[in-house]
Design a protein around this nucleic acid. Sequence first.
DNA 1: AATGAATGAGCCTTCATTCAT
DNA 2: GATGAATGAAGGCTCATTCAT
Lengths: 207, 207, 207, 207
Amino acid sequence: MPVKRAAGAHEPKRQRGHLRVAAIMEAGIAVFTEKGYDAATMTEIAARSETAIGSLYRFFPSKEALADALLLRYAEHVTGQLDALAQRASSMAQDKLADELVDFMLSLESQRGFTVALLDARGGSEVRRTRFRQAAREGLGRVLRAAMPALPKAKSETVAAVLLHVLKGLNAIDVDKAAARRLLQAEIRLLVRVYLGSAQQSAQASR
Amino acid sequence: MPVKRAAGAHEPKRQRGHLRVAAIMEAGIAVFTEKGYDAATMTEIAARSETAIGSLYRFFPSKEALADALLLRYAEHVTGQLDALAQRASSMAQDKLADELVDFMLSLESQRGFTVALLDARGGSEVRRTRFRQAAREGLGRVLRAAMPALPKAKSETVAAVLLHVLKGLNAIDVDKAAARRLLQAEIRLLVRVYLGSAQQSAQASR
Amino acid sequence: MPVKRAAGAHEPKRQRGHLRVAAIMEAGIAVFTEKGYDAATMTEIAARSETAIGSLYRFFPSKEALADALLLRYAEHVTGQLDALAQRASSMAQDKLADELVDFMLSLESQRGFTVALLDARGGSEVRRTRFRQAAREGLGRVLRAAMPALPKAKSETVAAVLLHVLKGLNAIDVDKAAARRLLQAEIRLLVRVYLGSAQQSAQASR
Amino acid sequence: MPVKRAAGAHEPKRQRGHLRVAAIMEAGIAVFTEKGYDAATMTEIAARSETAIGSLYRFFPSKEALADALLLRYAEHVTGQLDALAQRASSMAQDKLADELVDFMLSLESQRGFTVALLDARGGSEVRRTRFRQAAREGLGRVLRAAMPALPKAKSETVAAVLLHVLKGLNAIDVDKAAARRLLQAEIRLLVRVYLGSAQQSAQASR
DNA sequence: AATGAATGAGCCTTCATTCAT
DNA sequence: GATGAATGAAGGCTCATTCAT
């Protein structure tokens, strides 16, 4: 296709740009996770992604902009996953849903520390964090309402916020030994089931 | 009274010193909470406590020493409160215990963000954070074992870690409106009750 | 010429970098000499070389690194000169050798005070100073052994250390008037001749 | 004696003052020697002499004043010793004189580093150092003229300056092993003899 | 558009000196 | 006079960001 060809003249550049951006974001996640937002340096992120510091700043005009972009992409990933889960949730046994939520959270384990680095840490825009949490809570709220149609919207938002916090414990709670970590995760899995059960009950009762 | 006089001769100094230290610690909590450990500056802490930077360093020889002192004091407070609670816990209805735990955590509200700033954040000694968490978990574990003698020690440790995380949600979860905050806290109160009930059951079952 | 052009593309940078480094080193020598290692400030060295403080640190990552580099360069210069002298020393009358040593030392006059600032002073790495002295002594030892093959190695090392000290007097001894300085230098020249003669004699005697 | 008694009312204070000053000076020598002028801190000197910092400043109004006082006392000691030597020098064999000079210098060994710390180091008043050197040179000059009446005054000053420098090598030259140090000192002893001999000759020749 | 050298504000910390008690 | 807490200027060093090439 001529169109393709014609575009091709610039496509490689864009392609390269995309690769560059991807490399930067990957490096950004790694460095922010390892060092935390403040201790991370733009120089190191540039070096790890084999990008000139000037180029890094062309794509992300500030450290904060990079963090924002990272968080946005993460939010989109989380939202997407939760929405997919929401579609299946209506026809799902409650304990199954609990397990899926736990497993989904565990699948984000690689992001462990990243969340803390960019969300819980002070410094940097309050906006950034608020927006992210909002997205996650809303996504989780949609899952809950799909699974429990009886749940009023207001209640679902509160439950989502609490549930999200509980789930974050899966990756955020520090334990020294691997065995302890497994116990902990099992315990949280249990708690999520119990909590969902309790929420369901109260939803039906308030009907 | 000569005694009073004699004491008075040096009391002012000590008095002033104590006030100074108190002012610094208060300012430290405020600034660490607002900015996080890394972004907090000793200069600002000095300014807020109306202390010359040199004086600040006389009392706390490094930024880390200040954070440590803050955390230590906080840990002692928490441990003390939990131990007091443990003594009353054995003769307490379970829902009452849940409420007391929630109320205790809410009483720490003034420390909101502080925990995150100094504990969850990167930066500063890993040791500091680990030690604090250990203390809090152990204190909570003692409360649990007092309330549920049937709970095996290992299980109590896991439950304590999870329960602590849940309770932290009371202060840590960000909500925009006061009404939402009240709902949230009520929800967590409920969850704590449910969780304690579930733990109790499993403890008796495993007997 | 394309070659020239191609080279020109990067040459300016390198060129500038070299000039920058040279300016910094010159300023470093000046400031260290005037103030001594401890009292010298990186800020002043930066200012004198018209370098931004950040740039100074790009080239020399610490005050000590700068001092080390300065000393290393000086050591190489001294060693090189002494080795050149060693080659000519075997076919040289003894008084001629004495004169050459004295003249060589006087040629370092511009370094007056520098030696003291970085070598004799406290502060900064012990290693740095030790290494430099070792190099100078060994270089002078090689000159001596070339000139007096009968001199045992051990003896030559001792003589080198003493001779070096004597020669340092040429630049290190403070005198108020220019005339006094000339007298002093003539006196040391005499002493060096006498000392070399004495060393020669003892070398031949111990044969 | 009533006079003594009357004075006694204040004497203890003065006595205490003297002790205090002596303790401070001792501590000052120790700390300057160990750390060098710049790195030495008034606080440490106060602590080592068990003096309140405020009291230290009452006796010595600045760090430099303390260094000056130390140097002055040292200069007086050196001058006194040299003058005593001068009195015996006229009836002394030349080699004996050389030995006495060397031994005297070695007796100052405990001051090793002190000299460097306060004299050779840059920083602090140029005046201080100049004055000290002048005193030492003049003292040594008197010894020389006593021993060699034929030596013209101008010549004696030059020789004194050079000889002083040579003698300083006894304590100032850094060597790694004790054996090397002994060899070095023997070598310098030899050199001093040779030099004195040479000076004597030239003095008699120029008669 | 890419590059990376250059910039300089700002951080943590030290220490000579002062002065209220 | 004695004391030592208080002061704040200044030092070494880092790093986000810019801009000439």
